[in-house]
């Protein structure tokens, strides 16, 4: 009996003592934090993808609450609507941004861009890029080991084993920009997202001369400039033997698509212009079928 009482007593006293210590320590190290940070963090998607430029959603929430001007802050994952509601909650003005989507700009499939050597090292694009151009003769094309797929936190990218190229699922893509950073060849670009996932872009990054491009890949941009000539909106520029369609100027008129001799211009979720019968059977079918 005596033992029992003594045990209870000792443990009781010890418990009270520790509780007191804990209380004072908690008081001493308490950090005053704006409770709105918690609320804002809950409104953010919680993907911690880093697409906003901060280490995670918490850091972003902290910046949104503490900074006066939040026009430079934008969560690409949440999108404009959520940003507006967060701004409304904080009594600040939200940045106005159009929805974007990641675009992979290489059309060099296994068939169109033949392998000229066999890579047998670590299956990682960055490793390949440390010492040579890759298995094809094109120094600009997709390496195809999926560093971007690994970097994507939303499952929006997948490697098509038939073509050897990475494809973007625009419905899943949040334009966080992780793939843009991950690709050692700089193939990804965040472009304006059209309704119904429509898109038109130059699926090539090769700055080589036309003859060199043609030798390495049948789908590359040869910098002929036909597309730029036909564009009525000055949306297409040719720089370093490479055409670029400015998404802000492009009106999806699709005239350039029919002009491209190599099929480097890609059209997604749209029918090409049916103008002349002889161009109607260009690779358009396989683009749409995808």
């Amino acid at each position: 009996m005596n033992t029992l009482v003594l045990t209870v007593l000792t443990l009781g006293v010890l418990g009270i003592l520790l509780a007191v210590i804990l209380y004072f320590v908690a008081q001493k190290f308490h950090v005053e934090e704006d409770p709105r940070i918690d609320d804002v963090e809950k409104m953010l998607p919680g993907a911690n993808c880093g697409g906003c430029g901060f280490a995670g959603c918490r850091a972003m929430a902290d910046a949104l609450v503490t900074r006066d001007n939040i026009s430079s802050l934008f969560c690409p994952v949440a999108g404009g609507e959520t940003m507006k509601s967060i701004a409304g909650f904080l009594g600040k003005t939200a940045p106005d941004k159009e929805p974007m989507v990641a675009t992979m700009r290489c059309g060099g499939t296994c068939q169109k861009r033949p392998k000229v050597n066999h890579y047998d090292g670590t299956l990682n694009c960055a490793v390949v890029n440390t010492f040579y151009v890759g298995e094809s003769a094109c120094a600009f094309g997709c390496i195809g080991y999926g560093d971007c797929v690994d970097a994507c936190k939303f499952g929006a990218l997948h490697l098509n084993t038939e073509t050897g190229l990475v494809e973007v699922d625009p419905d899943k893509c949040t334009a966080c920009g992780a793939c843009v950073k991950a690709c050692p060849k700089g193939l990804f670009e965040l472009r304006k997202k059209w309704p119904k996932n429509r898109a038109i872009y130059v699926a090539c990054r090769s700055k080589n001369r036309g003859a060199v491009v043609m030798k390495a890949c049948k789908a590359g941009c040869i910098g002929c400039g036909k597309c730029a000539k036909v564009c009525a909106f000055d949306a297409i520029t040719i720089d370093n033997n490479l055409a670029y369609i400015d998404p802000d100027k492009c009106k999806l008129c699709r005239k350039c698509y029919n002009e491209c001799p190599t099929g480097a211009i890609r059209l997604e979720n749209m029918e090409p212009l049916a103008k002349e019968p002889k161009v109607a059977n260009t690779p358009a079918s396989d683009v749409v079928a995808k």
Partner: peptide, 10 residues
């Protein structure tokens, strides 16, 4: 001009 070296880099 730009020619490829042994690693295929121009």
């Amino acid at each position: 001009d730009a020619y490829p070296n042994g690693q295929g880099q121009r």
